[in-house]
Amino acid sequence: MEKHLTTVKSSIKAGTEQVWQWITGKARWLFQRSHWIVVYGYAFLYMFTGHNKLVNMETFVKGNKHIPVLGQYAEFIGWGIPLLEILLAIVLVSPWRKTQRWALWTSTLLMGVFTLYIALMLLFAEKRLCHCGGVIEEMGWHTHLIFNAVWVGLGMWAIQRLKNYTI
């Protein structure tokens, strides 16, 4: 009876170890590739907001005209930003690693510019205008700032991880 109990116990222990090994193995596999989640996340985000701005182009350009200093370039910004976002989204999902790395750099830089714009708006602007596209537009300004800052951080981390990635 005791021998049988010991056998059962050791089987459970071996089973638990196997499950644990499987979980840690999968977690390691996922972590090693987690920067791709950031790359594809950026692609989704830019395609989403770029498409949204293009669809609502008239409102977007008119809104840009009210931005202090940059208002005079409203038309250029109105077409340039969504087209750049869509281009970046396409390049980010391309299968060529070097191009992808360049796109991730540019995406993070662009997100940094957006973050700076929001921070300046929060600090200095009396009337805050945001034509950021879709659901994102409905975030509060502070939430938007945190959201963007997190993406800048993730982008920098992913760039670091992609540096020596050869697969």
Partner: peptide
Amino acid sequence: KKTTKTLVLGVALLGLAVGASSWTN
């Protein structure tokens, strides 16, 4: 095979983003 897989995944993701954008509009 790998390139095709990446391309299919990418196109699907971008399509999803366009769909989500149209839906929120």
